Simulated assay, not measured.
Amino acid sequence: MTPLADIDQITNPPRRVQRLRPVVDSVLDGLEPVINLYRPYVDGLENLPRDGRFLLVGNHTQGSGEVVLIPYFVRREIGTRVRPLAVSTIRYTPGLLGDALAAYGAVVGHPDTARELMRNNETILVFPGGGREMSKFKGEEHTLLWNGRAGFARVSVESDYPIVPVALVGGDDVYKSVFTRDSVVGRFSTSVMKRVTGKPDMGLPVTRGIGPTMVPRPQRMYLRFGPPIDTTKPPRRNHDSWVSDVKARTQEALEQSLAELLDIRRNDPYRQLNPFAWRNATLPDAG
C-alpha cells in the first residue's frame, strides 16, 4: 500500500513548520482560561504512561471538543505533544493552515504514518470512527460507530504499543441531530454523501444548537483516560485472533467509560453550564 504522506516529514518536518511550533504551543497554553471557564470534568490522568509511548483511542463527537481537550490535558499532565491521526484531506491543506496543522502534530491517518510515529515512541491519538462518528444522527449520541475498523489494534500489536482508551461525554450535546439515520432525510443525506465521498456510511445530519439556531449549546465536557491496555501478543496466540481481542477490549473499555461518564453527568446540576451558575459550578463527584 502506498503511503499517503511523506514519512520523512513526520519526524523531520520542514523548517517553516518547526518555526511555527512555539507559536502553536503558545496558543494552546493560552487556551487554559477558556477551558477552565467550561469547568471540564477530567479523571484518569494518572493512567497515562509517563514515557509518552502509547496510543490514545477515543470517540468522536458532534462538537469535536475531544480534538482539543485530549492533547491539551495530556500535554499538561506529562509534557508530551500528541500526534493526532487525521483524515487524509489534511495532505492537501495548503499554505499556513496546513503548516499549522503539522506544527500542532497532526499527520495523515494511515498505518505507515502510525508505524513511523511508534518507531519514534511518540504519543498518538486516533478516532477509529472517523468522520462518520462526528456526523451522528438522532439516537446515535454517545455511541461508537467503528463499523468493524480494527487497524489501530493491528498496528499497536505489531509494535507492542500500549493503548489508552479515552472517552468524552458532552460533545454530542453541543449540537442536536433532528432526524434519525433511517428517516427519509437521513437516507437522502447518506445517499448524497455516498455520491460525493464514495463512502456508504457517511451522512450529513441536520443539527441545531440553542433552539432552532446553530449557536452551540453550553455543555460541560466529561473526559476519562482509562488504564493502559497491553497489546503484547502472548506466545503461541494466533495473531489475527489477538488483534480482534485487543480491538474488542479497547471498545469495551471505551463503552464502559462512556456509560460511567453519562451516570456522572446525569447527577451533575451544572451539566448545561447556565451562565448565571458559572461561579458556583463545582465539579461532580466521581463516586
Rank of each mutant, 00 (worst) to 15 (best):
Y41T: 03
L117Q: 02
R265Q: 09
V196Q: 02
T2Y: 09
N36F: 01
Q256A: 15
L273Q: 14
T232V: 15
H60D: 11
G98S: 05
L31I: 00
V192L: 10
S189L: 12
P14F: 14
L273W: 11
G148D: 07
G98D: 03
I163Y: 04
N120D: 13
P3T: 15
L85K: 11
H60F: 07
G52T: 03
R195Q: 12
G170E: 07
E140D: 06
P212N: 10
V24A: 02
G287V: 07
R266T: 12
V24W: 00
R154S: 04
A286W: 03
A102R: 13
R53A: 06
K136L: 10
G226I: 00
P269I: 07
A103Y: 00
R249E: 14
Y175C: 01
V174I: 15
P94G: 13
A102D: 08
A286M: 05
D25G: 02
R19E: 12
T282I: 08
P227G: 02
L144D: 06
T2P: 12
T213N: 06
G129H: 13
I70Q: 00
A281Y: 13
R21Y: 01
R76T: 01
R237V: 15
K138C: 07
R237N: 06
V155E: 09
P235N: 03
L20K: 01
L273T: 12
H142E: 14
V67N: 02
E260F: 04
P33A: 00
S135T: 10
S177W: 08
D285C: 07
M221T: 05
P212V: 15
K233F: 01
F137S: 08
D263L: 14
G130P: 05
V246E: 09
P228M: 10
R237Y: 11
P111A: 07
S64I: 15
V157E: 05
G109N: 06
S26L: 00
D172W: 10
E252V: 12
T282M: 05
E140L: 03
R149A: 03
V206P: 00
R208S: 08
Y41L: 04
I229T: 08
W242Y: 13
L125P: 11
P200H: 04
P218E: 07
D285G: 06
S159M: 15
S135H: 10
R19V: 15
L85R: 09
P14K: 10
A153D: 12
D240Y: 04
L96E: 06
P13E: 01
S156H: 07
T180V: 03
D51E: 12
R266G: 10
V68T: 04
Q9E: 08
V166L: 02
K194I: 11
Q272S: 15
V17M: 04
T232A: 11
S177K: 05
G198P: 07
T11A: 04
R195A: 13
K138Q: 10
R19K: 13
S135N: 10
P212Y: 11
S177D: 09
L144Q: 08
A259L: 03
G129T: 15
P94Y: 06
R119V: 09
N238E: 14
G63D: 07
F54I: 10
F137K: 07
